[in-house]
Amino acid sequence: MTALELRGVGKRYGRTTAVDDVSLSVGDGELVALVGPSGCGKSTLLMLAAGLLEPDSGTVLVRDRVVAGRGTWVPPEDRGVGVVFQDAALFPHLRVADNVAFGVPRGRDRAARVAELLELVDLPDHGRRYPHELSGGQQQRVALARALAPRPSVVLFDEAFGNLDNGLRASVRDATAAALRGTGAAGVFVTHDQGEALAVGDRVCVMREGRFEHVGEPADAFHRPATRFVATLLGEADFVPGRQDGSTVATEVGPLAATPDARGEVEVMLRPHEVVFAADPAGTARVLRREFRGATYLYTLGLPSGRQVRALVPHTLDVPTGTAVTVEVEAGHPLRSFAR
């Protein structure tokens, strides 16, 4: 059974197309990360799924039931879709426990359910506090507890960790993913942070100008991106021109093993961690710049053609700028090539 399914969903604001013919199927318990630059339509897509916006075209299904489209409209309160908003959107006039209890029907086990969820998000003693008495990370966890309380089949996260600072963010995010997996609910995370998308999602959807450019597993998206846009969005990437024959590309850094995605004049994608180099007086490449990154150095190397590639190497490799070097590629897998 699918927890959430979008079929050809579209949404326009005046003349701007925010979401353009998007399809996606999220399985039970699956975590999907939706990543893209700001304004690409990813938040709009979430609101369409939640029922807080109405699509202009296409169909939305929750647990295989049509909730929007084909002349049907199920309002948000009847969809069984939870939402965690960027600013948490806790009800400021209600205590934490009342916030969590908000979507739970009145009954005997209501208090027990609230206690259970506060336990789940590791805030068992905070029920009597008001939202403004909590830190940002705590508010976000209460928002998650509140969204999970009515047992939704899918929870949508709209940049839910964007307001937290970096250290806190990873821990809240991981706690959230763990809590979600504990309940069996599916999750869709909207984020503009590629690291977050790759770390959390079972699958990653890369969105650009209202469309999906790539849908797939994180490692696949990182190593075999569908487009150059996806390649650069998910991490640092350089492109080296060459001529592909079968699964080999002849380039100025030597023959490279590539995926048979293209042939003839191509560009091969190189991630900095795949590039290695060594000082060599006979080398044709030069060290142009380097950037200290703590455990590593990011070197920018100039190739004979004038192209530049970056190499991410351990900080122990200390080569001054201007040094002549030879460049090699050690990817451990065929490289993605794009037709030129």
Partner: peptide
């Protein structure tokens, strides 16, 4: 936003 949140939590 709180209104939207309340709707997703089941309120008319």
């Amino acid at each position: 936003t709180p209104y939207g949140a309340a709707r997703t939590l089941g309120l008319r």
